[in-house]
Design a protein around this nucleic acid. Structure first.
Length: 315
RNA sequence: GGGAGUGUACCCAAGUGGCCAAAGGGGACGGGCUGUAAACCCGUUGGCGUUCGCCUUCGAUGGUUCGAAUCCAUCCGCUCCCA
């Protein structure tokens, strides 16, 4: 089936903004299945800290891309695109609506716009490159990038080691500049018929909710959840351990900060995360924003969205 | 009551005569982002005017000096020790 004929609705918004609740309320009304667009909910047993739906909620509505890998495994955009595209195809084949819900902006972008067809990460090359950055300085790497891909060198800040390394890695693996691969893909891609719905609130309200959310997670046993994951063998992957709430509590478990401080850090980092999300979302210019009032309910929102003009649900 | 400290911008903290509107860190704000993305990177952060400059600022007041956050005096606040 041609992608252009598949309709996907994205629900985006800052962390803790009620996206998931809306999606759960909306799905049955429009005959949809939910794809979680969340880089951390993919990990099994990372439940409290990622605000994963409960088993009951998961049973009530078909969800995809939740609990797909072990915390010891790495998972990234590439896997996400592969897995979610499969889910999209399956859901459409069943004649259902596709509702993508989540706050991982890069994942939203990659599913809606595509990812260039480049080689996947090569740890050996990365290690070598990173070692060189330490030995000869990051400027040397940037200079090297300038030689093979001046455009990328202009675009990537000299301090942005991670992106310099990736660009060099791609070049080494393919013999082609990453810029070229990316632009080539941009021309050829075919994309889904995407609609973006955004949930937003007053910033103060958003921060207030974020703090309340952290508090509630701790009350529901986040510390114990992290402690038990942290003690698992094999150990958590780098991706999994950088999750908000987990990274800070691991610091506590390793004895580097007091518990109280770790929890405070979670709150601060949650706020920063929201900020970064807000910046990202501005990029999705087609987004239809819904200004959510503090007393709004998921059902009320769902009703509103289900009847929104121009949504053309197949129900 | 006696002794030793200490007070710097939103917070922590350097600075001990001019190169200081004042290092650094945090926070906040803004931005970027194509295989680690809840990651990573960048910018701004006293006020007003485009460089450059002017004004206000280093607990308070008053001095010394061509010139003070830096030196002196008094006062106020905080900390620790001895009573």
């Amino acid at each position: 089936m041609d992608r252009r004929n598949i309709k996907i609705t994205f629900i985006l918004g800052c962390t803790g903004g009620g996206k998931s609740a809306l999606a759960r309320a909306l799905a049955p009304r429009i005959g949809a299945e939910i794809i979680s667009v969340d880089s951390m909910k993919v990990f099994r047993r990372m439940d409290i800290g990622t605000a994963k739906p409960t088993p009951e909620q998961l049973a009530a509505t078909p969800h995809h891309l939740i609990d797909v890998v072990e915390p010891s495994e790495d998972y990234s955009v590439a896997e996400f695109v592969r897995d979610s595209e499969k889910a999209v195809a399956d859901i459409s084949a069943r004649g259902k609506e596709v509702l993508c819900v989540g706050g991982t902006a890069l994942y939203i972008k990659s599913l809606s716009e595509g990812l260039f067809e480049g080689p996947s990460a090569d740890e050996e090359i990365r290690d070598r490159l990173k070692k060189r950055a330490v030995e000869s300085g990051i400027d040397a790497l940037h200079g090297e990038l300038r030689k093979v891909d001046p455009e990328a060198a202009d675009r990537i800040h000299p301090n942005d080691q991670r992106r310099i390394v990736r660009a060099l890695e791609v070049y080494e693996l393919t013999g082609q500049p990453i810029t070229e691969l990316q632009t080539q893909w941009n021309k050829e891609r075919t994309v889904y018929d995407c609609t973006f719905l955004g949930l937003r609130r007053e910033k103060e309200e958003e921060n207030r909710r974020a703090n309340a959310r952290v508090k509630s997670m701790v009350e529901r046993g986040l510390v114990e959840e992290v402690r038990s994951l942290w003690a698992e063998t094999p150990p958590m992957s780098t991706t999994a351990r950088q999750a908000l709430g987990y990274a800070e509590l691991i610091e506590y478990l390793e004895g580097r900060v007091e518990l109280e401080e770790a929890i405070e850090n979670i709150k601060i980092n949650t706020r920063k995360f929201s900020k970064a999300q807000r910046t990202w979302f501005k990029r999705f210019r087609q987004t239809r924003w819904i200004d959510v009032q503090p007393d709004a309910t998921a059902d009320g929102l769902a009703e509103y969205v289900a009847d929104m003009e121009g949504m053309a649900w197949s129900k």
